[in-house]
Amino acid sequence: MPENVIKLVQMLFGETHAKVVKVMLEDSNRELRDEEIARRLGMRINDVRRVLYQLHNNQIVSYRKVMDPNTRWYTYFWKLNVNNIYALIRRRKRRVLEILKQRLEYERANTFFKCTSGKGCPVVTFDVAMEHYFRCPVCGAPLEQFDNSKIIRFLEKEIAKLEEELSENV
């Protein structure tokens, strides 16, 4: 379980975030102060705080703040919420599903043209092609119609796959 969590954090946020999460997992039964995490990792406290705030924005860590009655300064105690990582992935998948649906609609609604030069110029829509008199806006070579039916089929398949994954309750 801890290795899974560290790997997922590394994939989603990067190496530094994974290091911070690793330290928090080692002491998962108690709250940690940002100074303590910074000391254990040999990192600057500002960097640790930046990482913690990013993780907090994604609900992976939570904090409790306590005011020192003498200095009136706040001390933050951070706690890891492991299960929220899986919820985060589900949320991101839901967002990706929306994006893929938008792209599918765009692919269905437009006719595309591609450059015949084979230099890897971007595919353009009919409106852009007409504006440039059916010449490539990048290299000037003639444009030919691009069949996007394979892309549409592929998108439909991926959307169905994601919808199925999200409908599962496990």
């Binding site: 290795e3 899974n4 994939m11 899986y86 992935i89 990706v96 991926e158």
Partner: peptide, 13 residues
């Protein structure tokens, strides 16, 4: 994690 590790298959994720 192997099942979750397939998440980079769509670049948006």
């Amino acid at each position: 994690v192997e099942e979750y590790a397939d998440i980079p298959y769509i670049p948006c994720l």
